[in-house]
């Protein structure tokens, strides 16, 4: 079972790793961080293959890897102290529906409306799955890590200065 899985998807995982390295070079990531992006790409492809083997729906096939990879890069961002985007974008790249986009366009060019509809639908579903996966985890981390973000304190300060003035005037009266 594992052997056949390996045989079937080895090429995909290997090429995904190479492709993510290429993408990292393309967006000029720091050299010592390319390896993290590569690992993320391998993880997302592996999970995608597992979900495909388990015959899950198209949405889940993309939602689960996207979720795991987002978790991975948000945690890594806090360990390595770099923006999460640096790890997230290369990791997501193997899931991007480039193939579906092409087949949609091809079907439209060939005047094949039925196929175009199916492929466009699938492209949208995949994009939705990836988006949902990213949003769920990022939102969690956003709420944890931005508790002490510096919002404006205008009215606080006004209240404080008013209090100070009141104290000053009361002490002056004494």
């Amino acid at each position: 079972m594992i052997g056949t899985f390996w045989e079937k998807y080895f090429v995909m995982i290997l090429t995904a790793a190479i492709g993510t390295i290429g993408y990292c070079l393309n967006i000029n990531t720091k050299r010592n961080k390319i390896i993290y992006g590569c690992i993320g790409g391998v993880v997302s492809t592996f999970l995608y293959c597992v979900c495909m083997e388990a015959q899950m729906s198209l949405l889940m096939q993309n939602l689960i890897p996207a979720t795991v990879v987002t978790l991975y890069s948000e945690v890594l961002a806090r360990i390595v102290k770099a923006p999460a985007t640096v790890f997230l974008i290369p990791s997501i790249i193997p899931l991007v529906p480039g193939g579906r986009l092409y087949y949609t366009m091809r079907a439209i060019v060939d005047g094949n409306g039925a196929d175009a509809k199916i492929y466009a639908m699938e492209t949208l579903v995949i994009a939705l799955g990836i988006a949902a996966g990213i949003v769920v985890i990022s939102l969690m981390f956003y709420h944890v890590s931005h508790k002490n973000i510096q919002y404006k304190v205008r009215f606080d300060q006004m209240v404080k200065s008013a209090q100070k003035e009141a104290e000053a005037s009361s002490s002056a009266q004494k």
Binding site: T15, I18, G19, G22, L25, N26, N28
Partner: peptide, 11 residues
């Protein structure tokens, strides 16, 4: 960068 382009497209 060129290596990146080639690797990405071929892979």
């Amino acid at each position: 960068k060129m290596t990146g382009y080639v690797l990405l497209a071929s892979a």
